[in-house]
């Protein structure tokens, strides 16, 4: 499989959030792309889907799920996947992502991104599910590294090594959340730069940027406030390895005005070039006169 499946660099985007719906529709801000939380648009024919349709008609959109439970041990929910596929087709999603985690078992959904042990057994299990999902969706799945707050004693490899092997074994892409790498590195005491260097650069399809909260005993991935300086440094390191990739800013708590979120996102342009857009063709010098 070629360089990140030929998926394009979409530039610098912002997570699509309800509080900004009105602003986005009326002002049509100059944003490179939007990311929508898949599940918020699945079982609704109301205003959210109407908004997403309008946004998708104007901007490139990617879908980001939180309930696939790719690391789960219940059977894959094929009804859910069919709906994701239909939504992706409807909004012409450039790609579909979710998280390396499980969200529940025995038919339940905790609606959290719960960690899994990094073992050979888990790797085989997850790789097989990723391949199945890619078949059903008829596109490569893109998986994000979530923040985590605990580690299993039974893990036999680091998360970075697990991810690197999964990306190859299951032939999928990665959504690299640098803030999550940072949060987990502090919580578990590993070197975040070594984590980044262990990943195959050509598999990184997208970046996430966000702020976190220091709880004293641990860092919490709150998506509140601005991204910390140390995390920007990580992003700089990562993007130097991979080259420019779609970069998206997530802000989910105490969300400020759209302009403030967009400004924060555009700080990424200090570390990556702006998206090259097709330039208008040169105006012809000679104009035919009748």
């Amino acid at each position: 499989m070629g360089d990140r499946f030929g998926l394009p660099d979409l530039g610098v985007g912002v997570g699509l959030r309800t509080v900004h719906f009105g602003y986005i529709l009326s002002k049509e801000p100059d944003v490179d792309f939007f990311e929508a939380i898949t599940e918020n648009f699945l079982d609704t024919g109301g205003r959210p889907r109407y908004i997403l349709d309008r946004v998708a008609a104007r901007y490139p959109v990617v879908l980001h799920g939180v309930s696939m439970s790719i690391g789960g041990t219940d059977p894959l929910d094929l009804g859910y996947l069919a709906k994701v596929k239909a939504l992706a087709a409807r909004v012409k999603a450039r790609w579909v992502s979710d998280h390396l985690c499980f969200t529940g078992v025995s038919g339940r959904n905790t609606h959290d991104l719960l960690p899994i042990p990094y073992t050979e057994e888990t790797l085989r299990h997850v790789a097989q599910r990723v391949r199945r999902v890619s078949e059903v969706l008829e596109r490569p799945l893109v998986l994000e590294n979530p923040s985590s707050y605990l580690e299993f004693r039974s893990s036999t490899m680091s998360e970075a090594v697990f991810f690197a092997r999964l990306l190859k074994d299951a032939d999928c892409g990665m959504l690299l959340d640098v803030n999550n790498v940072y949060v987990s590195s502090v919580n578990h005491g590993f070197d975040p730069y070594a984590y980044l260097d262990a990943l195959p650069a050509d598999r990184v399809v997208q970046y996430h940027l966000a702020g976190h909260t220091d709880k004293g005993t641990h860092l919490l991935d709150t998506h509140s406030a601005r991204m910390k300086k140390d995390v920007w440094a990580l992003y700089a390191h990562a993007i130097a390895r991979t080259g420019p990739r779609a970069t998206l800013y997530e802000w989910d708590e105490e969300i400020p005005a759209f302009g403030a979120v967009h400004r924060e996102a555009k700080k990424a342009l200090r570390y990556r070039p702006p998206l090259e857009r097709a330039r208008p063709v040169e105006t012809p010098r000679r104009i035919a006169r009748g």
């Binding site: 789960g72 041990t73 499980f102 529940g104 078992v105 025995s106 339940r108 905790t110 959290d112 719960l114 899994i116 042990p117 073992t119 057994e121 888990t122 299990h125 299993f152 039974s154």
Partner: peptide, 17 residues
């Protein structure tokens, strides 16, 4: 595949308690 389902069910049981 015996260990992973057990661990997940246990973790969920604790979380929702």
């Amino acid at each position: 595949m015996a260990e992973l389902p057990r661990l997940e069910r246990w973790m969920q049981a604790v979380i929702v308690h």
